[in-house]
Simulated scan of single mutants.
Amino acid sequence: MTAPLLELTDQERTVLWDRAEDVVHHGPQAAGADALPARIRHTVQRFGEDSGKTGYLLLRGLEIGQLPPTHQGGHPATLPHHGTAGLGMLIAETLGTMIGYADEKSGELVHNVQPLPGEEQRIEGSGSVAFDFHIENVHHALRPDFIGLICLRQDHDRVAATRISSCREAVELLKPETLETLRQCQFYSNYPGSFTRDTTVEPAPAGPHPVLFGNADKPFMRFNSHNTVSLSKAGRTALRALAEALEEVCHEVIMQPGDCALLDNHVAAHGRSAFTPRYDGHDRWLRRFYAIKSIPRSVLHMMDGSRVIPPIPAINGIW
């Protein structure tokens, strides 16, 4: 199945970039409901209402402006107040509310996904080894509803693919008994490395939870092939079958500079193929952002006007 693709016109690209460069200095709260050009806004809104069978949308042809080297002296660039952060704000606010997490990257709203020297083997954005299928923040009770990935630079060899697989396509390959097992509350998900970088004690895994839930014809998924486990043989067999089915239906997208992939984080798992960084200033570089449809009132009070979800221990008592 071909995923939805929207290619921007030159006029849309210019208008959107001008608005992005403005809003980035004021924050996502300055992104009005009609901030995106009409055709882009309507497409993104429709995706937010129903992400369809593939669970993702590709916007192509965004302006990305002038960029510094990906790395300088081994240190990654951060791009404060760059227009690409404004693009993320405008798109995220069209999908819902832009958020960050206090216990991930210090609550930043826009993340730089770039390989880091010495972290090549890490199973997260700073690595360059293959990264298998996962939804974002599988362990968290307030997972993002949507994630966005904006490509600033490709890898040197142009082989690094963003791999996207929809549970709504994968379930068609699974046996009824496997689907029944995946809907049982018998699975546990460990914290990803981005949440445990600064901890010395491994947090207890989240769960038990189902891997598949929702209507049979439009299921949702809570799964990370690296972090989701089961204590039962049937559960482990079902997880392997799901991983194989996701592989079978995978869409491989080699993102170009100016591409923005929007993913329904409850429908589409994603991963990345391996690549070889050179740390010469021209390595692969994406920017990532999150959007959520709603936040419980009690959590909003704890956030005190910010867009940062409090640390997990502070909100554990809500669920």
Rank of each mutant, 00 (worst) to 15 (best):
299 V>F: 03
285 W>F: 08
302 M>P: 00
237 T>S: 13
272 R>D: 06
255 M>F: 04
294 S>R: 11
260 C>L: 15
279 Y>S: 00
250 C>G: 01
252 E>Q: 15
282 H>R: 14
254 I>R: 15
263 L>Y: 06
287 R>K: 14
242 L>W: 03
296 P>V: 05
260 C>M: 15
275 F>M: 12
228 T>R: 05
278 R>G: 08
303 M>W: 04
254 I>V: 14
258 G>D: 06
253 V>F: 12
292 I>T: 13
283 D>C: 07
283 D>M: 09
280 D>E: 14
288 R>G: 12
273 S>G: 08
277 P>A: 07
266 H>G: 03
258 G>R: 03
294 S>M: 02
249 V>Q: 09
286 L>R: 03
296 P>D: 04
261 A>R: 07
254 I>Y: 12
299 V>H: 02
302 M>W: 02
290 Y>T: 10
263 L>G: 05
283 D>T: 05
257 P>M: 11
239 L>F: 06
293 K>E: 10
302 M>V: 05
235 G>M: 08
295 I>H: 02
254 I>P: 00
273 S>H: 05
272 R>M: 07
276 T>C: 09
293 K>H: 11
251 H>E: 15
291 A>R: 08
270 H>N: 07
283 D>H: 09
256 Q>D: 13
256 Q>A: 13
289 F>K: 02
284 R>Q: 13
251 H>Q: 15
250 C>K: 13
234 A>Q: 10
264 D>R: 02
274 A>V: 02
273 S>C: 04
241 A>Q: 15
272 R>A: 07
238 A>L: 10
270 H>P: 08
231 L>H: 13
293 K>T: 11
284 R>I: 11
268 A>P: 06
252 E>W: 12
258 G>I: 06
290 Y>P: 00
274 A>M: 01
232 S>V: 04
231 L>K: 11
259 D>I: 09
241 A>C: 11
287 R>P: 01
231 L>W: 03
226 H>A: 14
227 N>Q: 11
298 S>Y: 00
247 E>Q: 15
284 R>E: 11
298 S>W: 00
288 R>T: 12
226 H>L: 12
265 N>C: 07
301 H>A: 04
276 T>S: 12
282 H>L: 10
270 H>R: 05
237 T>P: 00
286 L>C: 03
280 D>S: 10
303 M>P: 04
247 E>A: 15
295 I>S: 03
273 S>Q: 04
236 R>C: 07
280 D>C: 10
268 A>M: 08
242 L>G: 05
239 L>D: 05
300 L>A: 08
267 V>P: 05
284 R>N: 11
228 T>Y: 04
241 A>T: 10
280 D>R: 13
